[in-house]
């Protein structure tokens, strides 16, 4: 197959990915919004719309902004196929995103390439399926498993899944990019120390922290480009 043919085929693949992704997203939105009404109809107890409205005003708007930021941030990182699946299956920050980045690094795929799109899609699909299978098995054996998993001795382990993940990734990513990593890390440490109330909105602070890192990366890139030219 010539490069031109490969390009054409990949373009067609991408078009179909968007078609399937959009259809799947709409289907899931309809199913998820429809499920509470089906439950209400079945039990003869429909949702209290006033309560939904009040609670939505209290916390829904925050999640709306957070979702918009997630869409803008993660779509370029996960690729089209990976993004559609991630937005359908969730658990992006604590699972899908690090999983896809890990796979990309494992095979050395470069961002923006067809290989990256394929690797990211395979990685996220496998991750989502493994989660679905583990949850399904877990739900089936939930009752006998519950005492073990809820044992107070094991709770610190499961309460600290995210720090365990980010600690491991910090070593992996910081060691090659200390010049990019140190300034946002210091700024975030100072910010969270002086304004501890921000700790409950850490996911929102990814935006300024990421922006600082990208700015430093851009300066580094321009500097290296200038030296090479």
């Amino acid at each position: 197959m010539t490069e031109e043919q490969k390009y054409m085929q990949f373009e067609e693949y991408n078009r179909t990915t968007h078609r399937i992704g959009r259809s799947a997203s709409v289907l899931m939105a309809v199913l998820l919004l429809g499920a509470p009404f089906m439950i209400g109809w079945h039990f003869g107890a429909m949702p209290d719309y006033g309560a939904v409205f009040r609670a939505y005003l209290a916390i829904g708007l925050v999640w709306m902004i957070s979702s918009a930021a997630e869409f803008l941030l993660y779509f370029p990182m996960l690729g089209a196929g990976g993004s559609y699946m991630s937005f359908i299956t969730g658990n992006i920050i604590n699972l899908k995103l690090p999983c896809a980045i890990n796979s990309r690094d494992l095979v050395g795929a470069k961002a923006g390439t067809a290989e990256n799109e394929i690797i990211s899609t395979i990685s996220i699909a496998v991750s989502a399926l493994v989660t679905i299978v583990i949850l399904a098995i877990g739900v089936m054996i939930l009752i006998p498993l519950q005492p073990v998993l809820q044992s107070p001795v094991l709770q610190p382990a499961f309460d600290n899944v995210v720090p365990a993940l980010f600690g491991a990734l910090a070593y992996k990513y910081y060691r090659g990019h200390l010049d990019i990593a140190i300034p946002p890390l210091l700024i975030m440490c100072v910010l969270f120390t002086f304004v501890p109330s921000l700790i409950s909105s850490t996911s929102m602070m990814i935006i300024p922290s990421g922006a600082i890192a990208i700015l430093l990366a851009w300066r580094k890139y321009k500097k290296n480009s200038g030296e090479n030219s």
Binding site: A111, I180, A181, L185, F192, P196, S209, A217, W218
Partner: peptide, 28 residues
């Protein structure tokens, strides 16, 4: 045919993400 700043930007975004969380642990 790929890579370039896009690649570095994504790594930087991820570094920023990790920094926000580690920073929150220090602040905590």
């Amino acid at each position: 045919s790929g890579g370039g700043f896009g690649d570095l930007a994504m790594t930087a975004m991820f570094v920023g993400l990790i920094s926000a969380y580690i920073g929150s642990y220090v602040g905590g």
